[in-house]
Write a protein that binds this DNA or RNA. Structure first.
Lengths: 241, 241
DNA sequence: TAGTTACTCGCACACTGTACGACAATCTCG
DNA sequence: CGAGATTGTCGTACAGTGTGCGAGTAACTA
């Protein structure tokens, strides 16, 4: 009996768990690969290797690499949370939404390179959109101004976060401190023709603050400014109506 | 070599002996190729063919494809104009700057895909930055708030314009009108779980307006909001100081 | 005239996305 | 039970990519 148990006898049976590959799994693997190696680090072959499958097997579950990226993006939209206006009022809600969106971009640093490559209308993206619209409607905007206000905030947040990411990865890649970096820029500027118009004493970075907190400060500054502007607009419309 | 290794820190090569191929010519060709075929349409071989040269000849003038793109980007920074504050006051100046920046992105639709891939500090980019800083200094901002305000506006403008581009190219690619497109989204949303929270009657596009003017309207709405917010901030600081 | 520099370019390598078609496992139906 | 359809995997191949290497050429300097 025991002697019958060898690789050869075992091989005949339905030995391999023929499972594994599923669309969800592929999307999850792709996300991990993107997060760890960046956009350029994602290839179908590498992804397949990570999933212990043949490269072209992926194409059964996913039509194209671009489609896969679309799926990943929508998956990530699911990480963003949009509070309802009844919880904290529209302004606090929008602020939380903005911070969540920013954090999501900072968590997936390859996002800025692809997020605008086409309008994504996956379910999660649409859900985020819908809930954001509720928020801005609660603020008192009407008609197309709901879209305008929402679009403005989102454009600012994604633009800001993208710029933050690019600064961070550059610092990480070069290994230089922000101060060193700023000094080099200043030196380069010195030789530049445009230098004469730069105010004296500027262009050196304020020292004593680390990058993260300074970026956070900058982000909040801009966000508050936009929201102030929007709030004033709503109030003015209220008065008129 | 370390760290701060980009084309701008590297030394300029000594004068070439006047041949057909030159760095400027390559940059010009690359720009044209990018504008007509998009980022994915730019390859060293195609570019070389357009310039009637061997593919690897380009590598004498340019270290790497990425460096070439950096050069193109800085070239494009040269298209942006930033008025001085003495011409029209800071707010009007910033508005003109913002419109110029937006127009530049709309003119080079591949820009959003690469603009944030690393902080560009080419001479033209720095010149734009310097002049923008003058503008925001004239507005009354002090210390790091100058940077914050400038960064906020630029993030908004680039984010907005990028989103506009993505909508436009999608419309062009699918050949659908905006109304068709919006209707399809609405139908998809219908079946979505998040639908119950969407206010009734929303999500259908206001008809009778074409995409370009609506996007322009949206852009201006957001820009004015930000500038309102920033202006209020300056006034408050004036009062306090 | 000899040597150095400035530049061009063919070849080759490793790698990419993905079309195709040959396989195998599982399910469906008579 | 057995046969056909469905579902899924994967090796091979093709056209394309960025770019390192080294051989080749033309022009300038000594």
């Amino acid at each position: 009996m025991a002697s019958m148990d060898s690789i050869w006898t075992r091989e005949k049976k339905s030995e391999p768990a023929r499972e594994a590959l599923s669309r969800e799994q592929i999307v999850r693997g792709a996300t991990a690969l993107l997060d760890s190696e960046g956009l350029a680090g994602l290839s179908m072959r590498k992804l397949a290797a990570r999933l212990d499958s043949g490269a072209t097997s992926l194409y059964w579950h996913v039509q194209t690499k671009d489609d896969l990226i679309d799926l990943v993006i929508d998956e990530i939209y699911g990480e963003i949370d949009v509070p309802g206006p009844e919880l904290a009022g529209w302004r606090r809600g929008v602020t939380l939404f903005a911070h969540s969106l920013r954090a999501t971009v900072l968590r997936h640093v390859w996002l800025p390179e692809v997020i605008y490559s086409r309008p994504r209308l996956g379910p999660n993206a649409m859900s985020v959109g819908s809930r954001a619209i509720v928020l801005f409607t609660a603020a008192g905007f009407i008609d197309r101004e709901v879209d305008y206000a929402m679009g403005s905030v989102m454009s600012y947040v994604i633009g800001s976060a993208s710029s933050e990411v690019s600064v961070r990865t550059t610092i990480r890649e070069t290994g230089k401190s922000m101060e060193d970096w700023a000094r080099e820029i200043a030196e380069l500027t010195q030789n530049s023709a445009a230098n004469d118009t730069v105010p004296e004493g500027r262009m050196q970075w304020p020292s004593g603050t680390d990058v993260d907190t300074m970026q956070a400060e900058a982000f909040e500054f801009g966000l508050d400014s936009i929201l102030d502007g929007l709030q004033a607009r709503v109030k003015a419309a209220d008065q008129a109506g």
